[in-house]
Computed example of a mutant assay.
Amino acid sequence: MRLRFNQLQDALSRGLAPLYLVCGDEPYQLGEAARLIREAARRQGFTEREVLDQDAAFDWHALAASADAMSLFSSRKLIELRIGTAKLGKDGGAAVRAYCDRPCPDNLLLIIAPELDRKELLSQWAKRVESVGALVQVWPLKGRELVQWLGQRLQSVGLQPGPGVAELLAERAEGNLLAAVQEIEKQRLLRDPGPLALADLLGNLADSARFDLFSLTDAALTGDRARTQRVLTVLRAEGTADVLVLWVLARELRTLAEAAGARAGGARAPGAGDARMPPQRLAAMERALSRLSPTLLRALLHQCSLIDQSIKGLAVGDPWHRLAVVADALAAGGFRAGRPVPQR
Rank of each mutant, 00 (worst) to 15 (best):
Q7T: 06
A11M: 07
G15Q: 06
P18F: 12
P18D: 03
P18C: 14
L19E: 03
Y20M: 10
V22N: 01
V22G: 02
E26C: 15
E26R: 02
Q29R: 03
Q29F: 04
E32M: 06
R43C: 15
V51E: 10
S66Q: 14
D68W: 00
L78M: 12
E80A: 07
R82P: 09
G84L: 13
T85N: 12
D91N: 03
G92Q: 03
G92A: 03
G93A: 06
A95C: 11
C100R: 07
R102D: 12
D106M: 02
L108G: 13
L109G: 08
P114Q: 00
P114L: 13
R118D: 15
R118N: 09
E120C: 03
L121D: 00
W125S: 12
V136F: 01
Q137M: 15
W139M: 09
L141I: 09
G143S: 08
E145H: 12
E145N: 12
L150H: 06
L150R: 01
L154F: 09
Q155V: 08
S156M: 04
A170F: 09
A170Y: 03
A173F: 12
E174R: 04
G175E: 10
A180H: 10
Q182N: 10
Q182P: 10
E183Y: 13
I184A: 10
L190E: 12
L198W: 11
A199F: 12
L202T: 13
L205Y: 07
R210H: 11
R210G: 14
L213C: 04
A220I: 06
D224Q: 02
A226C: 05
T228P: 07
Q229P: 00
Q229G: 01
A237P: 08
D242P: 15
D242L: 15
V243K: 11
L246S: 00
L249G: 02
R251F: 14
R251K: 15
E252I: 05
E252H: 11
T255I: 15
A257I: 01
A257Y: 14
A262V: 04
A264H: 10
G266M: 13
G266N: 11
A269C: 11
A272Y: 03
G273E: 05
D274P: 05
L282T: 12
P294W: 00
L297A: 05
L301P: 05
L301C: 05
L301I: 10
S305A: 14
L306Q: 13
L306K: 11
L306S: 04
I307S: 01
Q309A: 12
G313S: 00
L314S: 05
P319M: 04
H321S: 12
H321R: 11
A324M: 06
V325Q: 03
V325T: 13
V326H: 00
A327Q: 10
L330Q: 07
A331W: 01
A332L: 14
A337W: 05
P340W: 02
P342M: 07
Q343N: 08
